[in-house]
Design a protein around this nucleic acid. Structure first.
Length: 201
DNA sequence: AAACGTCACAACCGCCAGATT
DNA sequence: AAATCTGGCGGTTGTGACGTT
């Protein structure tokens, strides 16, 4: 069982967009006390929000190390490559993009990259060329991405676990898909321990 | 100018794994 | 071992901004 400080409370929380005042309260509190203990943070910070909501707001929007603004071409290429390698593991992908959040990467994928790949004739789920030759001119228009794509169509055959959310049809290597070796992405996918000080609740 | 459609993204929801008691 | 809680993740939704008719 848990300590009394962590007992579930019957509280109705504000939902919806955060106000500047709420943001400031959260920033002030975390600057003073650090991250962590999200459950008790709202009350301590004078917020009528769930701890979950506070965490999300901080992680996705208020953190000072966030890189706001457009995702540049290099970041975009990296997202595509990492998605081919990792699937919808947005937190892992975001971890390779300094200053970007999983939510931001996920949104960017769903609103920009998914469509872009589809226009190029590439299935965004598995990064296969859907029909060889389809929309080839579009591929040629984006030489940078296309050159990155050409070596790893068929990647999922080596990477089934990364696409665990996909339907079963994506788990076979049939249909004559060419299976090539993984490109040397030089991604250094070691997962390091976070450099966050431990705080006690 | 108004109505409508589409886009972009912040925020919420449900689920899960791990920690704690 | 079981119950409970927290933090984290991915999927989805709500809504304001913007473009088009």
């Amino acid at each position: 069982m848990r300590n009394p400080c962590c007992k579930k409370k019957e509280t109705s929380y504000y939902k919806g967009a955060w106000t500047k005042q709420e943001d400031q309260k959260l920033i002030d509190y975390i600057q003073k006390h650090g991250e962590g203990c999200w459950r008790s943070l709202p009350q301590a910070a004078g917020l009528v929000r769930s701890g979950k909501s506070c965490r999300l707001r901080w992680v996705n929007y208020l953190r000072p190390d966030l890189k706001r603004g457009n995702i540049d071409q290099d970041e975009e290429d990296l997202i595509i490559k990492l998605h081919a390698l990792l699937g919808n593991r947005w937190s892992l992908i975001a971890g390779r993009l300094p200053g970007r959040t999983d939510n931001e990467v996920k949104n960017y994928w769903n609103t920009h990259l998914k469509r872009k790949l589809m226009q190029m004739g590439v299935d965004p789920k598995n990064h296969h060329l859907r029909q060889p030759g389809t929309n080839l001119s579009l591929v040629q228009k984006n030489q940078k991405i296309a050159s990155g794509m050409q070596d790893w169509t068929g990647l999922e055959c080596n990477n089934n676990s990364a696409n665990s959310n996909e339907d079963n049809s994506t788990t076979s290597c049939s249909e004559g898909n060419t299976v090539s070796s993984l490109p040397d992405l030089n991604l250094d996918l070691n997962i390091g321990l976070p450099l966050v000080e431990e705080t006690q609740c």
